[in-house]
Simulated scan of single mutants.
Amino acid sequence: MQFNADKCEVLRISNKRSNILGATPYSIHGTALRTVDEAKYLGVTIHRNLSWKPHVQNICNKSNSTLGFLRRNLRKCSPKIKELAYKTYVRPTLEYSSTVWDPHHAGPDCPD
């Protein structure tokens, strides 16, 4: 099996504010791989400093987008249909891998 270099990325896990300068870039078949700050793996966004903020933002944006779609298209439906649509399309997105990051820390943005 051969890897497609265009679909591969390098994610360096570090608390340093800047990327390592002068680091030798990784390559596959002579093609240099691009270095990213965050990558999606099995539906979970992993940030270079292991912060869950990008993952939570992605999940919230996706759920809000789906909820907006349902509100626009189910405007005249009964509350039972709206509830069923919410539980089918929005709630699983919010709950997927939530045990990993919630509660990840208490702070001014997060109530105890």
Score class of each variant (00 low, 15 high):
I13K: 00
L70E: 01
Y96F: 12
I28E: 02
R91G: 10
K16T: 01
A106H: 00
R75Y: 15
Y86F: 15
R48Q: 07
N58S: 13
W101H: 02
R75V: 12
V56L: 14
A39V: 14
E83C: 15
W101I: 06
E9Q: 14
S65A: 14
I46W: 06
K40F: 05
L94V: 03
D102F: 06
N4H: 11
P103K: 08
G22T: 03
Y96S: 06
V10Y: 00
H29R: 11
T35P: 00
Y41W: 10
S18I: 07
R71G: 05
K7N: 05
T35S: 13
T99P: 05
S98K: 11
E38P: 00
V36G: 09
K82G: 07
A23S: 12
E38T: 01
N58F: 04
D102G: 03
R72K: 13
S78E: 11
H29L: 13
N4I: 01
E95A: 03
V56N: 04
P111K: 05
T35R: 09
V90H: 08
S18K: 13
G22R: 02
K62R: 11
V36R: 13
K53T: 11
V100I: 12
T99D: 11
R34L: 09
R48L: 04
L74C: 15
K62V: 04
C8V: 11
Y89K: 08
D102E: 05
K7Q: 11
N61K: 07
Y86H: 10
L42T: 09
D6A: 14
A106T: 00
S98E: 09
A39S: 14
H47Y: 05
I28K: 02
Q2F: 14
N64C: 10
T31P: 01
D6Q: 12
R91F: 13
S27C: 10
G22H: 02
A5E: 10
V44H: 00
N15E: 06
T35W: 05
C60R: 06
P92Q: 08
D112N: 02
W52E: 03
V44S: 01
L70G: 02
L70K: 01
I28S: 03
Q57C: 04
A32I: 07
N19C: 05
Y86R: 03
A85T: 04
L70I: 11
S97R: 10
H55I: 04
R72H: 07
C60T: 09
T93I: 15
D102P: 00
D37M: 08
I28N: 04
N4F: 08
N49A: 12
N49C: 13
V90L: 12
A32S: 08
P111F: 01
I81K: 00
F3T: 09
P25R: 06
N58Q: 12
C77Y: 12
N61M: 04
L11C: 03
R48G: 01
I13Y: 01
R75Q: 15
Y86W: 12
I28H: 04
P25G: 09
K80V: 14
T35C: 10
V36E: 12
G43A: 07
I46C: 05
T99L: 14
D37S: 10
S97T: 07
T66M: 15
H105N: 06
L33D: 01
D102H: 07
R75C: 14
F3W: 15
D109Q: 01
P111E: 03
C60M: 11
Y89N: 13
S97Q: 09
D102T: 05
K82C: 13
A5H: 09
N4A: 14
L70N: 02
H47A: 15
P111D: 07
R17F: 06
R12F: 04
P25V: 06
